[in-house]
Write a protein that binds this DNA or RNA. Sequence first.
DNA 1: GCATAATGTACGGCGTGCCGAACATTTGGT
DNA 2: ACCAAATGTTCGGCACGCCGTACATTATGC
Lengths: 254, 254
Amino acid sequence: MSDSVQMDLSASLEDYLEAIFRIVQEKSAARAKDIGKRLKVSRSSVTGALHALAQRELINYAPYDLITLTDKGRAVAEDVARRHEVLRDFFVKVLAVGREDADEAACKMEHAIPDAILDRFLDFVEFVERCPRGGSKWIKGFGYYCDNDNKTGNCEKCVELVLDEVRSRTTGKAADGRTSASLGEMKLGEKGVIVRISGTGGIRRRLLDMGATAGTLVEVERVAPFGDPIEVKIKGYHLTLRKDEAERIAVKLI
Amino acid sequence: MSDSVQMDLSASLEDYLEAIFRIVQEKSAARAKDIGKRLKVSRSSVTGALHALAQRELINYAPYDLITLTDKGRAVAEDVARRHEVLRDFFVKVLAVGREDADEAACKMEHAIPDAILDRFLDFVEFVERCPRGGSKWIKGFGYYCDNDNKTGNCEKCVELVLDEVRSRTTGKAADGRTSASLGEMKLGEKGVIVRISGTGGIRRRLLDMGATAGTLVEVERVAPFGDPIEVKIKGYHLTLRKDEAERIAVKLI
DNA sequence: GCATAATGTACGGCGTGCCGAACATTTGGT
DNA sequence: ACCAAATGTTCGGCACGCCGTACATTATGC
Ligand SMILES: [Mn+2]
Ligand SMILES: [Mn+2]
Ligand SMILES: [Mn+2]
Ligand SMILES: [Mn+2]
């Protein structure tokens, strides 16, 4: 359900690949020096890793040349980055860990987490995010529990927060009253739940491949000037859709 | 707050130490063969690791002899085991992962998790366990969410479960109506929150060292025939207390 | 263009962790 | 007591992954 790409890379090589992926995102091509700096490793170590990655056909590598990812390499790198992000989001959004610490820990643990458990982490974060609009109060109960040493009582405060949440629960409308839409109409930062996927093109395939069916949470991450393309996060994956593709996906706003 | 013992062992050596710890728990002394079987590693690899551990004074080792842990070794092993258990408990109790998978994942990730985040995991599990008596319904909401694909609606069912929980919330009495007690009076499996630590002996010190103050959750894990000694879990640590020590710790049952 | 700096690579070395084969010791059955 | 099986150790070898040094190439300023 989750993976599809497995390459059995060492933790070290996964980190090199992830670093290249990030650098390419920023600068379109990576240079050994940047990789070394990012991973706190010497230039000669980078060369060694590049050979290993090139031999596995994960990067395009010629001595002294700029480094880019092959298609296979990008797929693997995206998988690593997804593990990183799912863990980090859990640490930040559920455990209320600071972004820096969360990133550091995620980058250590991403190499050890099995797919099935990663999926659970993702599900849990989504459960927390979707249940009530705008962030669950009961998860705020945890924040209260953490911060205020409210551990002697029987968690009155946290139950109170849950009650607040339930009382204030809306009927699932967006701020402006819309209750359903197509993915193409959603605005930056809005979240929704997939209701139907009408199209028949490659997108439908891609969505099904990653297990995104009706009920799956979608979040709009980026929108280009004229609303095309639109970047969404689904199941921890970042997906770029053309406007006409996005319009074929019916969602219910939450 | 959490650690106190850090030895900078490799993941591999931590696993050897943890294995020895477990085997000694079961059989009082470990033999190389059992270690190898447990870690799926050859006998010669075990010998190598034993040298490394002996050199760090973590095990008592003489060629051909039985293997035991030094005090330092036991302390480090307990720390590894705690990381393992905190993670496993989170996977099982919060993410609803099966025990086997949870153990396997925990044993991979235990080597990569920072102390601060481990503490958060522990806090989160305790938050879930303590909030309402007998396991939080809202965490059952997550189970429901996972199992039944209840993802299209706006989580009505899970809110319903939270409401149930809030309605049925009791005032914090034990099954037989007791509401407070000393740790010495608690029965197997009961949970409570520390209210006061009267003693002045080593226990007070030990509890404070691991950050257990008023408000800390306690669970009774084992009780010897005449209620002495009593084994409790506090902050992920397993603690064995004499009856007279336990009686000096006032708790509120939950 | 050319000197010089910046960057990249090759190589040898080190530490870790694993293995199998050969050898050593202990254990257990007779 | 003795022999065989079980168990433990040593040794050489391999794969990683890192480093520093020396050397090669490329970029940059003049
Ligand atoms: Mn990493
Ligand atoms: Mn990472
Ligand atoms: Mn482990
Ligand atoms: Mn473990």
